[in-house]
Design a protein around this nucleic acid. Sequence first.
DNA 1: GATCAATTATGAACCGGTTCACCGCAGTTT
DNA 2: AAACTGCGGTGAACCGGTTCATAATTGATC
Lengths: 347, 347
Amino acid sequence: MSTQAKPRQVKLRDVAQAAGVAVGTVSRVLNANPTVTEAVRRKVQAAIDDLGYEMDVVAQSLRGGTTKMVACAIRDFDIPQFATYIKEAERIFRENGYTLLLSSTTNQPDVEMALLRAFERRRVDGIMMTISDEGHAGVARALAEAGVPVLLIDRDHIGTLDRVTVDHFGGARAATQHLLGLGHRRIAMLVGDLKAFPSRSRVEGFRAACAAAGVAIDPGLLRERVLDQEDAFRETMALLSLPDAPTAFFVAAMDTLGGSLRALRALGREVGRDVALVAGSDSDLAELYSPGVTAIRWNLAEMGRHAATMLLERMRGEAPATSRALKLPTTLVIRQSCQAVTAGNRD
Amino acid sequence: MSTQAKPRQVKLRDVAQAAGVAVGTVSRVLNANPTVTEAVRRKVQAAIDDLGYEMDVVAQSLRGGTTKMVACAIRDFDIPQFATYIKEAERIFRENGYTLLLSSTTNQPDVEMALLRAFERRRVDGIMMTISDEGHAGVARALAEAGVPVLLIDRDHIGTLDRVTVDHFGGARAATQHLLGLGHRRIAMLVGDLKAFPSRSRVEGFRAACAAAGVAIDPGLLRERVLDQEDAFRETMALLSLPDAPTAFFVAAMDTLGGSLRALRALGREVGRDVALVAGSDSDLAELYSPGVTAIRWNLAEMGRHAATMLLERMRGEAPATSRALKLPTTLVIRQSCQAVTAGNRD
DNA sequence: GATCAATTATGAACCGGTTCACCGCAGTTT
DNA sequence: AAACTGCGGTGAACCGGTTCATAATTGATC
């Protein structure tokens, strides 16, 4: 019978008084401690329902040392792929009683370090994050000193941290092989920052495919530090203006396809006829563009699920002492954006 | 001189002991209390730096009653538009020392109520959320009892809560007028759940434009509860199969354009030739599709900024007692997806 | 009926900060 | 020299739970 009219704030002590028991007993009821009689349990539960008692998680955290909060810090979470990942992870955490705490790192080591300190002060139980530079000593130390399990998202081995990664190497190699197989020799590649795993792997995959085919890479066609659509637009424009322009574009950086497509349109080049195009990540845009854009795909929801599950296991101490790494496979979704080079634009 | 080697966990009491002062004094130094001598302040600061002391926010929150956490609960945050909004809001909060706590409501009143209770237990300082049904009594009561400022995201008036909204009415009316002006009379409309403000306003805008033009609405062409791309695909397929199929589609629901485009492609209908098309929200896909899809646009980053700022002011008690509402304007971005009806498909 | 063991409830200490009534001490005042 | 100010620092209470040593109760045994 709930008759509460939102009195100030009901505390455990109030419940104890109402039920005529000690505060410790109410706590034991709340925590389903087996050393409590059914009669007492019922009496206390009645008082709880009657007063509309809600536990104060802050107080609980202070004493217990565990906050049931997980932090997620990601480069930039309005990248649709990341959003899908986080959404799945949040679902898993929520279903397991954990609350997600979200921050953008804006890809800056200083922010990453500051966030790690802030998470520590908040006593989160676990952290899931991307970092901008695996070689940054300050960030590496901050990670090592975190004091709670950290899971790296799509990043290289650091210390003994768990990781979920994507087989960007395989994806990029397959994409490059596809272009090479169609006769392309001057392939432009747009990637993000080589200080981080994904871009590094993509370039390695690209190089591996070229090397296997005996094709030399023109360093002028490899553009790095392409982080957003504006960057992609600019670099694509520049590449198209080269005297010896590429016949194919591998737009490998995350969520940058739009920028390249705008540049191609601005200069009147038609995808699939004037230039070939492969996107480094799949999207509605890649699928529905005319012609459909060949793209590298992997399961982001599954990635989020696995990441959350791995971190939960680690936080519960159920994980083995060794660090674990999960590598998600990629597939190349072939659409109509790549065609064999015509005589006109062959070297 | 920081020489810490990560000893267990440095507490305020340790700092006090190292500096040879009382714990209260250290606290006063940390909180920049003016009643502390420069000499003592310096001595304490040295001890803090030396020990690498980090404040425990949980303990601070327990005593202070404020957690510096803001919760954001949104229908489904892998909708790109919401991600942009949240990203901006998070930036503002972070810059002001607040941490964002994020959850999906999955558009279910039960989850919304559970989340509000969870936020209360966590003692968040403010809440920003969408709700699935403004008429739901349980949710309304939970909102009223929240005990902390709540800001509604793109929702109708509930109690005296602050709100940021979008002029969906104006946007939908403009879109409809555009289609009517081109001669379309059988216009299909796909919207989300009418229990929530955005879809309701869109339908009202649609009706207003039709009424002003003296055009009767065929109820069979108004499809509601279109929440994702699968729904949009199904409804678009169904509408195209009608004996008297619509000549124009107003795909008003958020992030559902892809579903409709897939259906059109599946049935071999070409946008801008066989059917006209308007999207209820703008995106890369709408802009870069061939032909470009006319769409309703508004500034999501600005919306996030305003929302965060309004909530911050409310939390600090700087806001007026009356509830505030901000309505963002929409513009219709006209592209090539709509054309005059040809003789063949005119009623 | 007394003794012992097992079970259940108690309440005080504790988590790590913040706050505030109070105290010591130096500088004025009479 | 006694009394008065007032600044600066102290330390204990407090926030709201959890935990555990201890007490009380019950039940079984002799």
